[in-house]
Design a protein around this nucleic acid. Structure first.
Lengths: 196, 196
DNA sequence: TTATATAATGAACGAGTGTTCCATTAAAAA
DNA sequence: TTTTTAATGGAACACTCGTTCATTATATAA
């Protein structure tokens, strides 16, 4: 019948994700993307429709990949709480170098996008971040049921707390990426404020 | 001799700051700025030189204003630690509504800008954030000397910790701006991890 | 081999970008 | 009142933006 696309769709999205993750939505031009993924505008627009939609697919891809890392961490460890700790360590420390940014792409997007100019993409980013937090809450609920965490704790509140710590740490890492310092703060997440 | 500028320089920078703060560096165009501050390109470029320099002056203005708020908090309270707590409450809670963003403009800039494309502005933002952290360390040192904080604590480490909490909270507030939740986390900064 | 269908190309579009330039305006100095 | 000097207004510049589309290339079906 006809020709079939010769490029690998996932590979293209992966490259787009890396560019958007590093340079942000507004900082990335379609010309940048064309060069990075080595496709001409015609092909990109036939496949993805628009810059906005390519961004949407990219941030979803990023969220999926991050979700897979979390699942791997849970599988590799003996308990939900240990899995969560491993995940945080991976996220914060392994992203210090070699990645487009040490910050979370979802958080960068929420920081950059506005309701006035990019409501749809902003809402998508907020949704993806909420999904991560819900997953944290599930894990913590399991940990409470297993007695790893005291049962008078509120899983949803702890999930918010974990989210805040990760966001704070990964952003802070952009200014001070000293591994010992970062590591210390990661460990302190579960053992109490350094003030006490 | 000659004519004198009829606009108020600080007022112009204030308006530019609000625009950059809300929409970010890349999201703000010179046309946006021209409209917001009601000046024609000739006047803007004669006064500020470039978009980059106007951004630099804006972020410096923002940092100065924030520094003044901190000083006010220290003056209004009975101790350094109480002053710091008041400042954090002000920053996180009073910025929830009515401001261009609930996030810190400096943090937004550090998140958005890259070494590859905007090294000078990024470095300036990093410097301004480091200044804030140094100020925190001074306050905490005083608090230690006054016996408000145990003397075995490291002021610099606690200053980093405070920085991370503020960054995390203000970013998180963009997704969940429930005042009770935010207030709870602000209070917890100084009383220990919710895990314990 | 030919016909068909679709993927890929890349020039081009109108709008928007940061910035420049200079005629005009107007206030202070002479 | 005249001269001087700098601020102002706004058209215009070269370039980049996201996007479109007519054309060309090519894999498959007939």
């Amino acid at each position: 019948m006809s020709k079939v696309a010769k490029f690998d769709r996932e590979e293209v999205i992966q490259k787009a994700t890396n560019l958007y993750w590093g340079k942000g939505y507004h900082g990335t031009s379609m010309r940048n993307l064309q060069t990075a993924i080595d496709l001409r505008p015609g092909s990109i627009y036939a496949t993805f429709g628009s810059k906005d939609n390519l961004f949407k697919e990219s941030i979803q891809y990023y969220a999926n990949k991050t979700g897979e890392v979390l699942e791997t961490c849970l599988d590799e460890t003996s308990s939900p709480l240990e899995g969560l700790k491993l995940f945080i360590r991976k996220l914060v420390i392994e992203n210090l170098e070699g990645k487009p940014s040490c910050m979370c792409m979802i958080v960068k997007s929420i920081s950059e996008l506005t309701d006035a100019d990019n409501k749809e993409l902003l809402d998508e980013a907020k949704l993806l971040l909420a999904n991560v937090e819900n997953k944290f809450a599930e894990i913590i609920t399991e940990a409470i049921e297993l007695g790893e965490i005291n049962s008078d704790k509120d899983a949803k509140e702890l999930a918010s707390y974990v989210q805040i710590q990760i966001i704070g740490l990964r952003t802070y890492a952009r200014v001070n990426s000293n591994i010992e310092t970062i590591n210390k703060f990661v460990n302190e997440i579960f053992i109490g404020s350094p003030f006490h």
